[in-house]
C-alpha cells in the first residue's frame, strides 16, 4: 500500500500510532492527520484586525472614532477590532498505575511508553500521552502557549507553558520519561499547577477518572474559582467499556486493590450500569462547573480528542470576543 493512498484518519488509529517509534513523529503524524482530514479548520480566517462599525455613544473612547466616516457622512462611528487572543493550554496527564491498563496488543519493536513496553499492549497512558503530544503540537503550531504535566499522587513532571520553539522538545521529553505508578489525585495535581498559573488557562485533563469523584470535584471547583476553563478527557480501554470477557477468575487491581473473584458473565450487566453511573456522575460534576467530559476508547482513533480540543478552543476564542 502506498503512503499516498492513506487517509488522514488512518494516522490517528492506535494501531498506526503504536508502530511509530519516535514520539515526535507520532505526534506530528497525528496533528497533520487532523489538519489534513478536516475540511474546514476552526482556525481558518482568524486573527483579522477590523471587525465592525458601531454608532458612537456617550462614554466611548474617542480614540476609536473613524474620522474618515465622519468626514464623509457627518456621523460618529466607532471602529471595533477583533481582539487578538493568545490561548494558554495546560495539559495534565494521569500517570497513575491504573493508566497502565490496556488490552490492544502491540507487536515487539513498536514504539510507545514504558507502560507499553512492559505490558506489550497499547495502554491508556499510551493513548493519553499520544493525545497530549498531538494536542501540544497543534497548540504550538498555532503559536499558543502550552505546558504539560504528568501527575499521580502529585505532580511528577511538568513543563511550564510557553510558545517557544524548543517547547515541543521539552514536552515530549516529559511525557515519554515519566513512569506510571501510584494513585491519581487530581486535587493535589491541580493545586500544584494553579500555584504556577496566573493567566486564564484551558486545563486539559487526560485520565481514566476511575478514582474518587470527590477529589475530582474539589479540583474542578478550584479551577472554576480561579476562572479557568477545563476539558476532561476520559481514557478508557475498550474492555473496560464493554467487559467483553467470559471468564470466572480472580481480578486483581493495578493500584493495590484487594483481589476479587468475578464471573464476568454474571456481573456484566451490573458492571456496565455502574460504569455508566460513574461516568454520568463525573459528567454532571464537570457540567456543574461549565466544563465538558469526553470519553474515549483507547482502541479507537485519537482524532476525536483533537477535534474536541479545537472545538473547545474556538468556543473560548469566541467567548473572548464577546
Amino acid at each position: 500500500m502506498s503512503t499516498q493512498g492513506l487517509r488522514a484518519e488512518q494516522y490517528l488509529s492506535p494501531e498506526t500510532l503504536a508502530q511509530l517509534a519516535p514520539f515526535e513523529l507520532r505526534a506530528k503524524m497525528v496533528a497533520d492527520g487532523v489538519m489534513n482530514g478536516m475540511h474546514q479548520s476552526p482556525l481558518q480566517g482568524m486573527a483579522v484586525e477590523f471587525a465592525a462599525h458601531r454608532q458612537y455613544t456617550a462614554g466611548d473612547s474617542i480614540r476609536h472614532l473613524d474620522w474618515k466616516v465622519f468626514g464623509r457622512s457627518d456621523k460618529l462611528y466607532v471602529k471595533e477590532y477583533r481582539q487578538e487572543t493568545n490561548l494558554d493550554v495546560m495539559i495534565l496527564v494521569d500517570g497513575s498505575a491504573s493508566m497502565s491498563f490496556g488490552t490492544l496488543g502491540v507487536k515487539q519493536g513498536w514504539g510507545g511508553t514504558d507502560a507499553t513496553r512492559q505490558r506489550g499492549t497499547w495502554t491508556k497512558f499510551d493513548h493519553a500521552t499520544a493525545s497530549a503530544a498531538a494536542l501540544a503540537f497543534l497548540c504550538l503550531s498555532q503559536r499558543d502557549r502550552v505546558g504539560v504535566a504528568v501527575g499521580a499522587d502529585g505532580l511528577r513532571g511538568a513543563v511550564r507553558k510557553s510558545a517557544a520553539r524548543d517547547q515541543w522538545r521539552s514536552i515530549v521529553r516529559c511525557l515519554s520519561s515519566e513512569p506510571v505508578e501510584a494513585r491519581f489525585s487530581p486535587a493535589a495535581c491541580i493545586n500544584q499547577l494553579l500555584a504556577q498559573t496566573s493567566h486564564r488557562t484551558l486545563f486539559v485533563i487526560l485520565s481514566d477518572f476511575l478514582g474518587d469523584p470527590e477529589g475530582l470535584r474539589t479540583a474542578l471547583a478550584r479551577l472554576r474559582h480561579r476562572g479557568h476553563d477545563a476539558m476532561l478527557l476520559a481514557m478508557l480501554d475498550h474492555r473496560e467499556l464493554t467487559l467483553d470477557l467470559d471468564v470466572e477468575a480472580p481480578f486483581i487491581g493495578l493500584e493495590g486493590e484487594e483481589a476479587l473473584d468475578v464471573d464476568t458473565r454474571t456481573i456484566r450487566k451490573a458492571y456496565l450500569e455502574e460504569l455508566q453511573r460513574h461516568l454520568q456522575g463525573i459528567d454532571r460534576q464537570a457540567r456543574a462547573f461549565g466544563y465538558d467530559l469526553q470519553v474515549f476508547d483507547t482502541h479507537e482513533s485519537v482524532g476525536p480528542v483533537l477535534a474536541a480540543l479545537l472545538s473547545r478552543r474556538e468556543g473560548m476564542v469566541a467567548g473572548g470576543r464577546r
Partner: peptide
Amino acid sequence: QKPIEWAAMELL
C-alpha cells in the same frame, strides 16, 4: 483461570 489485572476495580 489465571488472575486478571483490572483497572476499574471499584466498579467491579
